[in-house]
Nucleic acid binder design. Structure first.
Lengths: 189, 189
DNA sequence: TGAAAACCTTGACAATTGTCAATGTTCGGC
DNA sequence: GCCGAACATTGACAATTGTCAAGGTTTTCA
């Protein structure tokens, strides 16, 4: 059930079972249903989630009220609206479940306490942020430097699994193009 | 000279002069000239820079060999190719001086040592990465959800100082549009 | 300071991408 | 398993953005 979170932390914390137990005790399991909203723009994001199973979408609404997907996160990764979570300020993004699955949630106070009192957990947190940052830089460069067709080639090369498991509509949103353009360009790959 | 770096660290480290001196001793001042390349794609990025004065551009080359600007960084901020620096792996981006100025550079080994032995420095580092991540998420959303005109309105509202000090060509590159389109849309603000 | 280079703007046109509408298909919940 | 809703595709057209070329202006640096 929560084995993958345990494994994830163990791989990074070493084998200190006391600390591991302490950390794990702050997480609560959460079964998610399709389309469930985890974070709503404007609300304060109170949890940081580890995805055991399933897939979530991080998005904002554009001028027309259409969804623009900033990120897609799958199992064995963390997801939260970090700005909101870290500052307990209103969220600027929405997070929604794409595929039903299983999460582990840790609240803000617990998270703070773990970061401050369990040094390996602080390191894990730093790694999460580092990894997230490197990913977003990578993704940013696809937008700054590529057109729609190149971004499609990019996702095909670097995120083939994502491409396979998401609806075309979601992939189009992830690439920042309309579903129609996506459908047309797909024929030219 | 290096007063602003000292102030920056002091604000975050508290007033422990011994630690402060230790940290500062690992930085070397660097006077930069216009167009100087700090990091070249493919090379390993060996330093992390604090900008005392001036302005640098982080960019990649697109299919046509044109520059696409992933970020612009000004004084009182840090800049490095974090992926390359952290892993001592080949850089994926270039960093170049836009305005001549003054930097403080810290090498990889020194940086590692400081992070591991001076806890407040580790916290500073974490804050840098957090801040960088939040910024890049913010910027990512402008690309996913906005068209060229909206991005121009965005920079005018959120980065007016940047807009004022950069050439039109650089701003256009920062927004991911051609200089010609930029010139035309400017008339419609 | 003066020459060369880079920059900014504008026009004409081409290419890319978006919008709206219609149709057939797939998928999810009961 | 069925029904309704959401999704995927295609066509026609409009809007946005890019490209190439030319001109005037500004900036750089020797």
């Amino acid at each position: 059930m929560q084995a993958s979170l345990e494994q994830y932390i163990r791989d990074r914390i070493g084998a200190d079972d006391a600390q591991l137990g302490e950390v794990l005790s702050h997480f609560v399991p959460l079964k998610t249903r399709r389309n469930q909203l985890l974070v709503r723009e404007g609300d304060v994001c109170r949890y940081c989630y580890f995805i055991i199973k399933g897939c979530v979408q991080v998005f904002v609404y554009d001028r027309n009220g259409d969804e623009s997907t900033r990120d897609i996160v799958v199992e064995n990764n963390w997801v939260s609206e970090l700005y909101s979570f870290g500052n307990q300020a209103p969220a600027r993004e929405n997070i929604r479940v794409v595929e039903p699955g299983q999460l582990m949630a840790i609240g803000f106070d617990s998270f703070q306490k773990m970061v401050q009192t369990v040094p390996p957990f602080e390191q894990i947190y730093r790694q999460i942020v580092e990894q997230s940052y490197v990913n977003s830089v990578f993704r940013l460069n696809t937008f700054v430097a590529m057109d729609a067709l190149e971004r499609m080639q990019w996702i095909k090369e670097y995120q083939p699994k994502l491409l396979a498991r998401l609806s075309s509509k979601l992939v189009a949103s992830y690439l920042g193009i309309s579903p129609e353009t996506y459908s047309r360009l797909k024929a030219r790959l």
